[in-house]
């Protein structure tokens, strides 16, 4: 079976510093991959390269064996990326934020209340995001994972500012997703249960 996503000899250079050199790995359906490394090791850079937000100095990222720059539409149809910044507008309500980002992603907007409930935001649907806490803002962004139809999830620090119960819920969602043939690449500073059980790890510091 061909891989979902493949990093092919990626080299990343930031301000003349080599973050990683000729990094290759594959992401198959059912994979849960945690990227590790100290601050400034290039975790975020790697995730952005994988999502096609930035271009590698050398090498390429391939989606179903095709360079992602050549098949953006198909790749993005199949990708959900949640970065450092939540992409939540303070001037819009929780539900407006969610439905907009879902429709951008061409995901299902029918059962949106369910997703709001899953991230424990029931009752806050019509509050402006600027009135909500950092954790709640993060939850608005994460809520779309419950509606997501895409196979590949790339998540940069998804657990930041999320309480214990939330983390557990999210971990369960991760497991469901990979069980259904999805794949997740993520970074996290927290010690996670699933990480110990079922995740592969890529440590950026070992590479140099």
């Amino acid at each position: 079976m061909s891989s979902l996503l493949r990093a092919h000899q990626l080299t990343c250079i930031r301000e003349d510093r080599v973050l990683f050199d000729e990094l290759s790995f594959t992401v198959n359906a059912g994979d849960l991959i945690q990227i590790e490394g100290a601050n400034g090791a290039g975790k975020t850079s790697l995730l952005r390269l994988l999502a096609g937000l930035s271009l590698p100095y050398e090498g390429e990222v391939r989606y179903q064996e095709q360079a992602i720059t050549k098949c953006r539409e198909d790749f993005y149809q199949d990708l959900t990326f949640i970065g450092h910044l939540a992409g939540v507008k303070g001037e819009l309500t929780a539900i407006e934020n969610l439905s907009f980002s879902l429709s951008l992603q061409q995901d299902n907007t029918d059962n949106i209340d369910n997703a709001i409930e899953r991230v424990s935001l029931s009752g806050f649907e019509d509050s402006y995001a600027s009135h909500l806490s950092a954790g709640q803002n993060r939850r608005i962004a994460l809520a779309r994972l419950w509606q997501s139809t895409s196979k590949i999830w790339i998540l940069d620090e998804p657990f930041t500012a999320i309480d214990k119960a939330g983390v557990a819920q999210l971990e369960q969602l991760f497991l469901d997703h990979i069980a259904h043939g999805g794949a997740i690449v993520f970074t996290s500073h927290q010690e996670l249960q699933i990480a110990n059980q079922s995740a592969q790890r890529i440590n950026l510091e070992d590479l140099i």
């Binding site: 980002s101 951008l104 061409q106």
Partner: peptide
Amino acid sequence: KNDYSDGSLEQMLLSPQ
């Protein structure tokens, strides 16, 4: 500028649309 600093610009770039 605002879309850039709160990350929603990124989401637009990652849309299949």
